[in-house]
Design a protein around this nucleic acid. Structure first.
Length: 279
DNA sequence: ATATCTGCCTGCTCGC
DNA sequence: TGCGAGCAGGCAGATA
């Protein structure tokens, strides 16, 4: 499941491989992969444009095109980009839904087993990205900004952190990891977190994400980068997917519960529900 | 404002 | 071995 570190890894790779390349052709195998505009207009408007730069906002990949427009992609659960310098060397399969060929002969394929991923071609990126919250690795994500955000809401901390309009880019894996690192129970309520807890959470979010980026993402199941390489961060995970395994801090068995219908992993000893138990 | 549920999808695991 | 049921989960949209 691509979250911020995986999307960042993909965006960097795409930027390296595609910046400066002019689009020669587009083919769509699964029309619903294209959120907007219509499939016809999508292809027509894309051909002839040049990829200026590929970046990321939250979990969205953002391709700035020349002379105008932005191609914005959300990979959702199983979306994947594969790029090859030689179009003939990269086969299409039953899970390939979008193919973009460049004038150089380079090809970019979008594979998506679950078909949840979506493309949008827009004039103004804010049409898609406008509602996103703080970017956790940018300067705007300060401890004070996070504290203000959490103080203004009354909801469970885990769903709050998954809410992309609050903080953009966190998903199930990294929320569990950050809460473990900050020693905060996933069911704690946002506005009851102490200053110290918020400070720990702020630091934990940044550390967990930065480490995952330096490990080129987490390959729990499907994730692969555009060169089809898996990430290495799975070995750095403390709790996600480790139900029953010893907590790296205190050796108590990791527990898995449901929070807002999401599988949630934590250490019941390090992450107490009662704030008075915090050190 | 917040919580809960459904739909979107397919592959995988599990129990029989 | 085969098969159906249940699960995984990001997000939008509807409802409580």
């Amino acid at each position: 499941m691509p979250e911020l570190p995986e999307v960042e890894t993909i965006a960097r790779s795409l930027n390296e491989q595609l910046a400066g390349q002019r689009i020669a052709g587009v083919s769509i195998g699964w029309p619903r992969s294209i959120a907007r505009p219509g499939v016809e207009a999508f292809s027509e408007q894309l051909v002839g444009r040049t990829v200026q730069r590929v970046g990321r906002r939250g979990k969205f990949i953002v391709m700035d095109l020349y002379p105008s427009k932005h191609l914005i992609v959300h990979l959702r659960m199983t979306g994947q980009f594969l790029v090859c310098e030689d179009a003939w060397a990269l086969e299409s399969d039953r899970h390939t839904h979008v193919t973009i060929v460049f004038e150089s002969g380079c090809v970019m394929r979008f594979r998506d087993v679950r078909k949840f991923g979506r493309f949008a071609l827009v004039d103004d990126a804010s049409e898609v990205l406008g509602a996103l919250g703080l970017e956790p690795l940018s300067d705007t994500f300060t401890c004070e900004a996070l504290a203000a955000l959490l103080r203004s809401r009354r909801r469970q901390i885990k769903p709050a952190l998954l809410d992309q309009t609050m903080v953009a880019g966190l998903g199930n894996i990294y929320v569990d990891e950050a809460l473990w690192e900050a020693r905060i129970h996933p069911l704690r309520t946002t506005h009851t977190l102490t200053e110290g807890e918020v400070a720990r959470l702020h630091e934990a979010v940044r550390r967990v994400l930065a480490q995952a980026i330096s490990n080129r993402g987490t390959t729990f199941r499907d994730y692969r980068d555009p060169q089809n390489l898996p990430g290495e961060n799975q070995r750095a995970l403390a709790v996600y997917g480790r139900k029953g395994e010893p907590c790296p801090r205190c050796a108590s068995p990791i527990v898995r519960i449901l929070v807002g219908q999401r599988g949630t992993h934590f250490c019941p000893v390090c992450q107490k529900l009662d704030p008075s138990c915090d050190p």
